[in-house]
Design a protein around this nucleic acid. Structure first.
Lengths: 160, 160
DNA sequence: TGTGAAAATTTCAAATG
DNA sequence: CATTTGAAATTTTCACA
């Protein structure tokens, strides 16, 4: 599978519309883009097969399911070797509190985005699932006041 | 709209399945959960109206659209006053490179998740869109080696 | 890529327990 | 009164032009 995929203006417009609402019908896509619905189906199938579209995700409000507090945990794993970080990553991913996990450059190796019931739940999570582990050298906790999604992801404009 | 919503086992199972694949049909949901398809439609409509389901998002691979490098930017905005941070947030959200934006506790006020074409593009972004701004006091850049999504978001288990 | 028809799904009103 | 039934409306899907 090639690293990047050739996308024409029809593909780009379809991606833009689907990022706005992933449930847009082929009929509506077709009307907006100016091609036949079956062409939209073909384009979307191609984008899926090409790996441009990875899937469809449900956007949920964590607060509405009893997790009104979100936080980012910066975690140092020491020693930072493969035999330790593999299990660490899988354990973190399996936590019901985890929303996303990043492996980063810099002094803090991992960033974990979590959603919890409150500060007590957050304290329990940090103490029981992170700092109590031998491979976890340090955890820094920052609360999320607010978060925003951003505009559609599109190819960079070629610099002149 | 209430802060949280009463969810029975049917709702929870539907949410779990839809988080796994948001395109699961009502027919398949119904078969898996053990109710009629129309009941699934009713439950999902309710979850949408109740704000539990915020929408359906397309998961895309940034690398496939010419943005193979991702990074997190920690940004200090000084002075941290409403009349400065409102425009800052809107400008950042409108950048084609921005994927997500967080307002955090701690010394770094904002975290910006960006996807760029390469290190040159990242340098341009940091210099032209962040450090050149008067209200931006400091930017710290960390590259993302790898990222993972996590298991389904479900209500916390009541502590005994 | 479009046409048009078949298959599947979504949606809803009425019936059911 | 939430759920199911059953049918209509819509969408998805595909063979062929």
């Amino acid at each position: 599978m090639p690293d990047s995929v050739a996308l024409d203006s029809v593909d780009l417009e379809i991606l833009r519309l689907l990022q706005n609402d992933a449930r847009t019908t082929y009929r509506d896509l077709a009307a907006a883009v100016g091609v036949a619905p079956s062409t939209c189906l073909d384009r979307v199938s191609r984008l899926r097969r090409g790996g441009v579209i990875l899937g469809h995700a449900l956007r949920m409000d964590p607060a509405k399911v009893g997790r009104p507090l979100e936080a980012l945990l910066s975690v140092q794993v020491r020693p930072h070797r493969r035999e330790l970080i593999g299990p660490f990553v899988e354990r973190v991913r399996a936590l019901p509190e985890s929303r996303a996990l990043f492996h980063l450059t810099g002094p803090d190796d991992y960033l974990v985005h979590v959603a919890v019931a409150g500060t007590a739940d957050l304290q329990r999570l940090v103490l029981d699932e992170f700092t109590s582990r031998r491979e976890v050298a340090r955890v820094e906790t920052r609360l999320i006041f607010q978060q925003w999604t951003c505009g559609p992801l599109l190819p960079p404009v070629p610099q002149a």
